[in-house]
Design a binder for these strands. Structure first.
Length: 724
DNA sequence: TGTAACTCCCCTCCG
DNA sequence: GGGAGTTACA
């Protein structure tokens, strides 16, 4: 049989991976080695071999990655002609395939999104109602905080860890599958003394979530694994997939590894793909052991290594390889490229942050003039706020940009408030959301809300009974408005939308296997935008009282309403928003239009899997990369090194690593006017020869400059204010 | 008893 | 800026 033309486009290793038959396959793919292309080609090969699309499961790290993969498969001519037309069957199907399209679709999405979907279908097997809520990090923290106070853990003489730390500890236990004592000893040694309290707290937390039918991110995985362990549902799920492909396997954790093992079942048709040098999610308990131990977990696995880089010019690879050359633990893999260039990447010494901003702007515009559109350029930062000053400068010069990563839309208080109102409509047992909503009302604090919650619990969460509850007289008017609102939205049944818990619904009526819910009697099927509009009527006067910058917030709420309009049901909207939040609205210079060209600002984490012609890494300063907060042990430092490696290997043709020599002191640091800084330790003097050294000269400091710097510092405060 | 106003910290990456 | 804890007032 002669080889199709498109297969000939792949290099021998890529082709071997794409055409691999049945059985486990491990693809070690360095940065820019055409990993996505290879996986996409493999999907096409599977389809051509007659594997039905809906029996293929594609697990990716972000949903964007899943969509990209499917887009690539469609690019193969033979694939689009195939009977198995390819569509992505999202983990939770937001817009999903058009209604007219009945072709089976590939299952694709993140572990969390697929877990969400499977649990809504099969969750009963693990005593989970299909209406469960999904909590994001802040919801989980709020719940922990509530319980921490209830258990009296906050007022101990010895300081008890804060809610964020509690959640980190809990999450690490779950994801690394290690007992609390061991996690405390190794990762949180300063909390060892609180082990008993934490144990009680976590037990209460687990019980609390169960009562409210709520799952946090970790639970999605935990319940998925539990589901796989049930003899009936587990076997059915394993049976329904013939081939499983996992991207970015180096960033999965032990729990996900166990899920995969069970998902693979006896067929063992598992393809995993990853690069240990790009493992940057250790803080989420990801472990490279998954990829290293794959051959042990799946004996007889084929292993294919992709080393030819198609992305970057050789000098950029040389520099990146040099950085990784110092890694303590490394699985040798030297990327090489056919793409020659005379130009080494630049190491840009800036005098201060302001000069760094000017340099970036100038360089971006120079590339633009030379024919590199803004879309093909990016500025990468370690953490989101390090681009604040640059954002001001970009706006001043009318350079459009979009920002990825960092403070998210959903974390803004006003957005959370509105969602909490929707949540209690979807799942009235959600006490965390109730608390949030009740606290909005003037005159209601912890005591009154506790009382109301007790009333609700005693009355089966019926909203019709809510206004019989006694509240402080000062709170009465606002409280009655809330009752009226919920009453209206709950409809004529006099109860909130989903009062049922496990077993309360008609057991014979399970959700359809594929496609969005088509329940005709679902009261939320059509009305979410209308619901949000009604909620906003109630909420508008409240938030204008509570928060500043009402107009900026109102715009966010409008945006939320628009997003909601694209969803079929409240449940989809809420879980989708939690699992795949919009990247941000922080581009306060205004959302650029689709057809416009814009520069990308991104955290390095969010840049994973992306590439640009020109990449500028700013604040490559020791203390920022590696972060001062992440230098606890050598594992953390190694992860920071890989982070720099990931950032550098995003660049195709031009790479600039910039760092300011001094930082100006902030207002509260009295005394010193500025602090001196050093280049990141990951680029030691011995390897600086891999870079061109650009030492920017500064005009003589004048009082004008000082004023300009002060103004920029003020402008940074302005940006923060946008988010208050 | 419970809420509102005040002060003192600290601030990472993401599903 | 915002969370956590403390104090002042209804």
């Amino acid at each position: 049989m002669s080889e199709p033309a498109w297969l000939a486009e792949l290099n021998p290793q890529q082709r071997a991976a794409a055409t691999h038959g049945d059985g486990p396959l491990l693809i070690i793919a360095g940065a820019g080695t055409g990993k996505t292309k290879t996986l996409a080609a493999r999907v096409v090969c599977l389809l051509q071999r007659g594997v039905p699309a809906d029996r293929i499961l594609l697990l990716t790290f972000t949903r964007r990655a899943a969509q990209e993969m499917i887009r690539r498969t469609q690019a193969y001519p033979s694939a689009s002609r195939s009977e198995n037309a390819i569509h992505l069957n999202h983990g939770t199907e937001l817009q999903s395939a058009p209604a007219t399209c009945h072709a089976p679709s590939i299952w694709g999405g993140t572990f969390h999104a697929i877990a969400n979907r499977l649990l809504r279908q099969y969750g009963r097997a693990v005593r989970l109602a299909p209406e469960f809520s999904v909590w994001d990090q802040t919801d989980a923290e709020d719940a922990l905080n509530l319980l921490r106070q209830e258990l009296g853990l906050h007022s101990r003489e010895k300081r008890f860890p804060k809610k964020g730390t509690c959640l980190d500890i809990y999450s690490r236990c779950v994801n690394s599958r290690r007992p609390l004592a061991s996690v405390l000893k190794r990762d949180f040694p300063w909390c060892v003394e609180c082990e008993d309290g934490l144990k009680r707290l976590f037990a209460a937390y687990t019980e609390f979530k169960e009562r409210q039918q709520a799952l946090d991110y970790d639970d999605l995985l935990l319940f998925w694994l539990a589901l796989m362990k049930t003899p009936d549902a587990g076997a059915r799920i394993a049976e329904r997939f013939d081939h499983i492909l996992v991207d970015e396997y180096q960033d999965t954790n032990k729990l996900q590894g166990e899920i995969l093992l069970r998902l693979a079942g006896k067929k063992r048709n598992v393809t995993v793909c990853g690069d240990d040098a790009q493992s940057i999610y250790g803080f989420r308990a990801a472990t490279v052991r998954n990829i290293l131990d794959f051959p042990k977990q799946f004996p007889g696995a084929a292993i294919i290594t992709l080393e030819q880089n198609y992305r970057s010019v050789q000098p950029i690879l040389d520099a990146a390889n040099a950085v990784m050359g110092y890694a303590r633990q490394r699985f040798t893999k030297n990327l090489w490229s056919n793409r020659r260039s005379d130009q080494r990447p630049a190491l840009v010494h800036c005098l201060d942050e302001a000069q760094q901003c000017r340099f970036v702007c100038r360089q971006v515009l120079e590339h633009l003039e030379a024919g590199v559109p803004l879309r093909k350029q990016a500025v990468l930062v370690r953490t989101a706020h390090w681009s604040d000053m640059l954002e001001v400068e970009l706006a001043r010069r009318n350079i459009p940009f979009r920002k990825f990563g960092g403070l998210r839309f959903l974390e803004a208080a006003h957005v959370k408030d509105l969602l909490a109102l929707l949540r209690i409509l979807q799942n009235p047992r959600d006490e965390v959301s109730w608390c949030r909503v009740l606290h909005l009302l003037p005159g209601i604090g912890p005591a009154a809300s506790k009382n109301i919650l007790r009333h609700l619990a005693e009355n089966g969460y019926r909203v019709a009974d809510l206004n019989r509850c006694s509240v402080p007289s000062a709170a009465r008017p606002a409280f009655e408005k809330l009752c009226l609102l919920l009453d209206e939205l709950a409809g004529s049944r006099g109860e909130l939308a989903w009062p049922s818990i496990v077993g309360n619904r008609d057991p014979g009526r399970s959700r359809p296997d594929v496609g969005p819910s088509s329940d005709a009697d679902d009261p939320h099927r059509t009305g979410i935008p209308a619901q949000i509009a009604r909620i906003r009527e109630f909420y508008d006067p409240l938030f204008r009282d509570i928060y500043d910058h009402a107009e900026a917030r109102a715009r966010d709420l409008e945006q939320l309403e628009q997003i909601a309009a694209t969803f079929g049901s409240c449940e989809e909207f809420l879980s989708e928003l939690t699992l795949d939040p919009p990247s941000a609205t922080s581009d306060w210079s205004g959302e650029p239009r689709k057809d416009e060209d814009w520069l990308t600002l991104s955290t390095i984490h969010s840049a994973k899997g992306c590439e640009w012609d020109a990449v500028m890494i700013i604040h490559a300063t020791d203390g920022i990369i590696p972060s001062d907060l992440a230098t606890g042990d050598r594992y953390e430092i190694e992860e920071e090194r890989r982070l720099l490696y990931v950032a550098m290997t995003r660049a195709r043709n031009w790479l600039y690593v910039c760092f300011p020599l001094r930082y100006y002191a902030t207002k509260n640091e009295l005394g010193d006017r500025h602090a001196f800084a050093q280049l990141t330790r990951f680029i030691p003097p011995e390897i600086r020869g891999k870079f061109e050294q650009w030492k920017l000269t500064m005009p003589q400091p004048s009082s004008d400059d000082a004023v300009a710097i002060m103004q920029q510092t003020d402008a940074r405060a302005e940006i923060r204010a946008q988010w208050t």
